[in-house]
Amino acid sequence: MEGILQQHLKHLGFTELEAKCLFVLSDSGTLTGYEIAKRLGVSRSNVYAALQKLAEQGVVLASKGEPTHYHCVPIDEIGNKIEADLQASIRYVKAHMPKQETERTEYFSLEGDAKVLERLRCELKLVKREALCDLWSEEAELLRGELQYAHDQGVRILVSAVGGADLPEGMLSFPHEREEAWQERSGRKFALLLDRKLAIVGTRGGGQPAKAMLTEHPAMVELLLNNFFHDVVMHELQRDMGEELARRYGQGFSKIVRKYTQD
């Protein structure tokens, strides 16, 4: 039996032995418990116990008489039954699981590309009113579907985009100028402030695992809000007075920065 198929059957709630029994029956048709045990090289008592449970679940048919013969129902029927059972369980859990209203004021960390992207996508789907996003083009593209979904739900979305992000029509956005060397040095930093309540910051790329931190701590929320509006103001000033600002204060306001950072 292929390991990947067995793993997926286990994900559907079957034990390892139950999965093997299902595979043998699907592959060979009607068999007795003795024949299945012989093919699998395991004890008959364990096989009979697994077959009895499968029969109780309605995914295996058992004949009357001795010896008992077993037959696997069509895989489409098994899939439909599992899907219906899962949907019923999900509906019940949603209706009866306690719903906590407490704020997540602790700082929760995530590591790994899959975990980070999954959390970003889930949180974007829960936004009710506003999403302020500071994203590189790579992350904007990966989150494009969730941004579109939120926008379609009437959420106000404003994106500070780096690298010419191609955002869905109707979203407010402005370019955020950053040097490519900055990306290569420390990865692509991103920040999201959702409903002015949940702050998410992290990095992807740069040869390091993706990392993110999320919190509803008021200090971090205010920090991201102020930083985002600072970027909005700077964008407008650069657009209207860019050449004059560079002449008076240096490229990237380097003259001001040196004034307060040099010893």
Results as ranks from 00 to 15, higher is better:
40 L>Q: 05
119 R>Y: 12
27 D>W: 07
123 E>W: 03
219 A>W: 06
228 F>H: 03
109 S>G: 06
141 E>S: 10
43 S>F: 11
163 G>C: 10
244 E>G: 03
211 K>D: 02
244 E>D: 11
116 V>L: 05
253 F>G: 02
231 D>Y: 03
137 S>I: 08
142 L>S: 15
150 A>Y: 01
254 S>E: 11
109 S>I: 12
167 L>V: 04
111 E>L: 11
115 K>H: 13
21 C>W: 00
199 A>C: 09
77 E>D: 13
199 A>S: 14
203 T>Q: 11
82 I>L: 13
56 E>S: 11
127 V>M: 03
63 S>G: 06
157 I>R: 00
127 V>D: 01
86 L>A: 15
32 T>P: 07
9 L>Q: 04
234 M>D: 13
28 S>Y: 15
214 L>H: 12
97 M>D: 03
68 T>W: 05
21 C>T: 04
96 H>K: 07
82 I>D: 04
102 T>F: 05
181 A>I: 08
30 T>A: 09
257 V>H: 12
226 N>I: 03
20 K>L: 12
175 P>H: 03
46 N>E: 07
69 H>T: 11
69 H>N: 04
196 R>A: 00
143 L>H: 02
257 V>L: 13
152 D>S: 08
213 M>T: 15
88 A>M: 11
33 G>F: 02
250 G>A: 10
128 K>H: 09
250 G>F: 05
164 G>I: 11
141 E>I: 05
113 D>S: 12
173 S>C: 14
204 R>N: 10
19 A>Y: 05
107 Y>L: 13
37 A>E: 05
258 R>I: 07
124 L>V: 01
52 Q>E: 12
7 Q>D: 13
121 R>C: 12
216 E>A: 01
194 L>D: 00
246 A>F: 01
7 Q>V: 10
240 D>P: 00
112 G>R: 02
139 E>I: 08
258 R>K: 11
180 E>L: 08
100 Q>I: 09
246 A>D: 10
91 R>D: 06
179 E>C: 10
205 G>H: 08
163 G>N: 09
177 E>S: 14
214 L>T: 02
84 A>Q: 14
55 A>S: 15
137 S>E: 12
96 H>R: 03
161 A>S: 14
24 V>K: 04
174 F>P: 04
34 Y>H: 15
